[in-house]
């Protein structure tokens, strides 16, 4: 009687074909892996080393131990820029997700014109970030900007979006909604993939529209919601181009805007690195942001185990 050896758990038995396929897979992946090592992993390790040094780019780095990290903890400008960035992220991400979901639900009902509106909503994403910054500087002008003019039509005296420190961040958040098109498209695609029979079954069971949305739509698109949550959170924490263009981009704007109110973390990092030549300190700032993003992402991933449903996944 032949005996059958059961597979050892945790150890895969690979056929010659599988091994050959794996070699080919690595070969095809090699350009990306090499690129990653040279252009991602290399600079990351270099910046980790630099974060423990005093380095001005011009002279060799001088090892200073944890000085840069100590300074990070006590520098009010870092705390201010981090606070602004977290404030922006906390408002921007939920707003983008809510508005995008609302627009995607509307688009799903549009019918034949869906393709047209999909393009219309996506077009702003194609606008260069620098152009968006300049455009919104004009739109947010206190006296002559279109936004305050529109508010004036309904009897509201618009605020000083770009000069009042309390209104600078809301103005930036308003600007950030300009490019929510990609999130809309992702949600629309997810909505279109929800099987119709689930809605029919729910309707037969007596579920109203809200119950169907809560119990069918949301779980079925939770994967897309989670993806956009992660991506938008990371992008928000890295906010740079539009705000830099608006408030720091040239001599005139640098001079006359309130940099406390508009200072984002990566903008402050850029200034430390390239304007003040504190590359070691800027590297420490980069690693602090890395850790913050890592922690936030891990928390989100952990929470996703409870809230995200992946089709075909056993729970």
């Amino acid at each position: 009687m032949a005996t059958v050896t059961p597979p050892v758990p945790g150890r895969r038995h690979r056929t010659p074909l599988a091994r050959r396929e794996a070699r080919w897979a690595y070969l095809f992946l090699a350009p990306w892996i090499i690129g990653f090592l040279i252009f991602y992993a290399g600079p990351m390790l270099a910046s980790l080393w630099l974060s423990f040094t005093e380095y001005d780019v011009i002279n060799p780095p001088q090892y200073t131990g944890l000085d840069n990290y100590r300074q990070l903890m006590s520098d009010p400008a870092v705390a201010r820029s981090l606070g602004n960035t977290v404030y922006y992220t906390a408002l921007h991400v939920p707003l983008v997700m809510l508005i995008s979901l609302g627009l995607a639900l509307l688009l799903k009902r549009v019918g034949r014109l869906q393709g047209f509106f999909r393009t219309v909503f996506y077009l702003p994403v194609m606008t260069p970030a620098v152009a968006v910054g300049i455009l919104f500087l004009l739109l947010l002008n206190t006296q002559d900007g279109l936004i305050n003019r529109a508010l004036g039509l309904v009897g509201i005296a618009g605020p000083s979006w770009t000069t009042d420190p309390h209104w600078v961040m809301p103005g930036i958040i308003l600007m950030s909604l300009w490019s929510l098109g990609s999130t809309v498209i992702i949600y629309l695609a997810a909505l279109q993939n929800v099987p119709r029979d689930l809605y029919e079954a729910a309707a037969i069971d007596g579920a109203g529209s809200w119950a169907r949305f809560r119990s069918v739509t949301l779980p079925m698109i939770s994967g897309a919601l989670f993806f956009t949550l992660i991506v938008n959170t990371i992008a928000s924490l890295q906010m740079f181009t539009e705000v830099y263009t608006m408030y720091f981009g040239n001599r005139e704007t640098q001079n006359t805007f309130n940099s406390d109110a508009a200072s984002f973390y990566v903008i402050h990092l850029f200034q430390e690195a390239f304007q003040f030549l504190h590359m070691g300190f800027a590297s420490a700032m980069a690693w602090l942001l890395f850790v913050i993003i890592l922690i936030i992402t891990l928390i989100q991933v952990k929470l996703s185990n409870r809230f995200v449903y992946y089709e075909g996944e056993d729970k």
């Binding site: 991602y40 270099a46 924490l237 890295q238």
Partner: peptide, 20 residues
């Protein structure tokens, strides 16, 4: 694997801000 994905996300960020 999700942790790894998150690490890669964060790695990309560090590249963007430290490898300029």
């Amino acid at each position: 694997s999700r942790i790894l994905r998150a690490t890669v996300f964060a790695g990309a960020l560090t590249l963007a801000i430290s490898g300029c």
